[in-house]
Design a protein around this nucleic acid. Structure first.
Length: 592
RNA sequence: GCCGAGGUAGCUCAGCGGUAGAGCACACGACUCAUAAUCGUGCGGUCAUGGGUCCGAAUCCCAUCCUCGGCACCA
């Protein structure tokens, strides 16, 4: 049976580059999962895009003297290049400033309004007369009403830690220009989250066995703590206009529309593919499984808010009353990744930026290490010393060296072709049987989104091939009994041919190279490309995945004797210990 | 303060009711096809602390100590 799998990946906020925390939290796990399912033959749709709206982008734009659109387009372009380089295989990585996204987000708003899940209410907010705009809480500072500290932010006091309401600040002033804001009433639409509690909680409990415990606990507390309505509109200029008469000056709140991107990007992908209804296979077929790959900071947005929006809309762009939009099947949220024991901090530049690390290291070693320390169950740590160790002592020594020693020996002694094994002995059959169980055991881990365990299992199998090579006769008898050596070398080649597939979701670039070295013509995976799409008024760039040449399959291969090998070359490089100090020294240094 | 996670071999972690595990490091041995890679053996832990439940507890319960994260309008 062919599975239908939607891989929804958190939308990166386009006001800064991606770092390894983003990679570990969402993009890499999603890509590993998607690549596995593609190999398995599942129908995969993997989408994401740049989140281009919201106040932080307008603030960044003011700082640079640019428009918000210029700011987000700059980072969007960087996201495309970075993710292409590290091999995140989106079927579509678009952004939220497309006409498609605007239109659908507005239709979602209208549907929620029609179904009576939106209500109006007034809020009192701080307004800057000099800047002529409402100020987000965190852009106001003043004296803390609790401890008297003068530098308290509108949302929280840094000295006493109290959570504040910006309206309670004494002597509030704008962080931007220091002017005192006034209090103004403003009317907004609110999403009635409380109306969904009696459907969200049972849905959660029905999935509690499968979902990660941290996701379940957090969501349960969140819902049982009482769901309040949340405003879905804002008084800013940058964003999607509210589709309601008289409200054209207001915008949809970014949290409200960004999560809809999973849906809107699916529709865009279908449109771009020339099959405009194709998205329905993932969003209306009850057998389809939607996985949201996100970081833990995003849990309530996906297990509560986004699900409420889907329940509230119920059905869109379809007349069949028996259909209902699918809710996420799983939300495998990851925890956070620290760097050298400390939290990521953009302001202190305590981070490992992806464009930077990719300029000095190959993508697969980065993918390998980040998978090994992926924060699946608790916060983890990116350590340069550990990166070097795992690269040298695990990736190179166990796997890279295995492939290299077997290929080199085969190439040298059998004129560059795969030798004919003759009859396999028990020792050979045992090894091949063991390796082939990997498609089951590694697959089960991947299926359950236990990616560290899956990779560990696959590397463990590579280790078993080294054990086999220690026991079977080959280099010592190649001169006396070449036929026996051929049996061993063929068996080892066949083992690495299978390991190439088992490791491909994690290490796509080097598996592809090994595939070539083994003499195959067809690539395992398709290509990740940057493409341009024109709408009525605007054109946008996106990442797309072209699977037309992909031939990899999640199943034991049948390496043919006589197949011509390519001249062998190592898959990986050892790293010198000196890079540890060099890389650590970069941390915390101001960027240019 | 509230909620949550974690405290297991030198290091990084798995195990989560049935005689303490892996990788790396270290020691010794084997081997030389391979990126001084590989393979084997060994060393190494009163599983944070104190109580409790149980025939039996890293594994369940209670308390204590320590570390870390989150606390909804920074998406």
């Amino acid at each position: 049976m062919t599975d239908t799998i939607h891989v929804s990946v958190a939308w990166p906020y386009a006001n800064g580059d991606l770092h390894v925390g983003h990679l570990a939290g969402a993009y890499l796990p999603a890509d590993i999962f998607a690549r596995y399912h593609r190999l398995k033959g599942s129908r995969v749709l993997m989408v994401s895009g740049s989140d281009s709206h919201g106040t932080p982008i307008t603030v960044e734009a003011d700082k640079r003297g640019q428009t918000p659109r210029q700011v987000f387009e700059h980072y969007h372009r960087r996201f495309l290049e970075t993710q292409q380089a590290i091999g995140i295989s989106y079927d579509l990585f678009t952004h939220t400033d497309t006409e498609n996204h605007h239109r659908i987000a507005q239709d979602f708003f209208r549907a929620l309004q029609r179904n009576e899940y939106l209500y109006r209410d007034t809020q009192r907010q701080l307004y800057s007369e000099s800047e002529k705009r409402f100020l987000p809480d965190r852009y106001v500072e003043g004296t803390c009403p609790i401890c008297g500290y003068d530098g308290a932010r509108g949302d929280q006091c840094d000295r006493c830690g109290s959570l504040l309401d910006a309206l309670d600040l004494i002597n509030p002033r704008s962080k931007t220009d220091g002017s005192p804001p006034i209090i103004r009433e403003t009317e907004h639409f609110f999403l009635d989250l409380g109306a969904f509690a009696d459907r969200l909680l049972p849905y959660l409990e029905a999935h509690a066995d499968r979902w990660r415990p941290n996701v379940v606990r957090f969501t349960r507390n969140y819902i049982e703590g009482g769901l309040k309505g949340r405003p879905v509109t804002r008084d800013i200029e940058w964003g999607i206009p509210v589709p309601h008469e008289g409200w054209e000056q207001k915008r949809l709140y970014v949290w409200f529309e960004a999560v809809m991107g999973y849906f809107t990007a699916s529709v865009e992908w279908a449109h771009n593919s020339g099959r405009p209804e194709a998205w329905k296979d993932w969003w209306y077929d009850p057998q389809a499984r939607i996985y949201n790959f996100i970081g833990k900071d995003n849990i309530p947005f996906h297990t509560v808010i986004w699900q409420a929006e889907l329940l509230g809309v119920d059905r869109i762009y379809d007349d069949d009353a028996s259909r209902h939009l699918n809710l996420p099947f799983d939300v495998p949220a990851n925890e956070f990744m620290n760097v050298e024991g400390q939290k990521f901090s953009k302001s202190r530049n305590w981070a490992v930026w992806l464009p930077d690390i990719l300029s000095r290291y190959d993508p697969d070693p980065i993918r390998y290490y980040v998978t090994c320390v992926m924060p699946e169950s608790h916060d983890s740590d990116f350590s340069w010393a550990d990166f070097v160790r795992r690269n040298n002592d695990e990736l190179v020594a166990t796997w890279g060296n295995l492939a290299n020693r077997v290929l080199s020996f085969a190439y040298k002694h059998w004129e560059g072709v795969v030798p004919d094994p003759g009859d396999l002995r028990p020792i050979d059959r045992e090894l091949l049987a063991l390796i082939e169980t990997g498609f089951q055991t590694v697959g089960e881990h991947l299926e359950a989104v236990r990616l560290r365990a899956a990779l560990g299992e696959a590397i463990g199998l590579a280790r078993q091939v080294n054990v086999y090579l220690d026991r079977a006769p080959w280099f010592s008898i190649v001169k006396q009994d070449k036929a026996a050596a051929a049996t061993t070398v063929y068996t080892a080649l066949r083992a690495i041919d299978n390991l190439k597939v088992l490791l491909a979701p994690f290490l796509p670039f080097t598996s592809e190279r090994l595939n070539l070295l083994l003499g195959y013509q067809q690539p395992i995976f398709g290509d990740i490309q940057i493409a341009s799409f024109a709408e009525e008024a605007r054109t946008h760039e996106a990442l797309v995945y072209d699977a037309s040449r992909a031939a990899g399959r999640w199943a034991p291969g049948d390496l043919r004797p006589g197949q011509r090998l390519q001249p062998p070359a190592p898959l990986y490089k050892k790293l010198d210990d000196s890079i540890v100090e060099q890389e650590r020294a970069r941390l915390g240094q101001p960027l240019d």
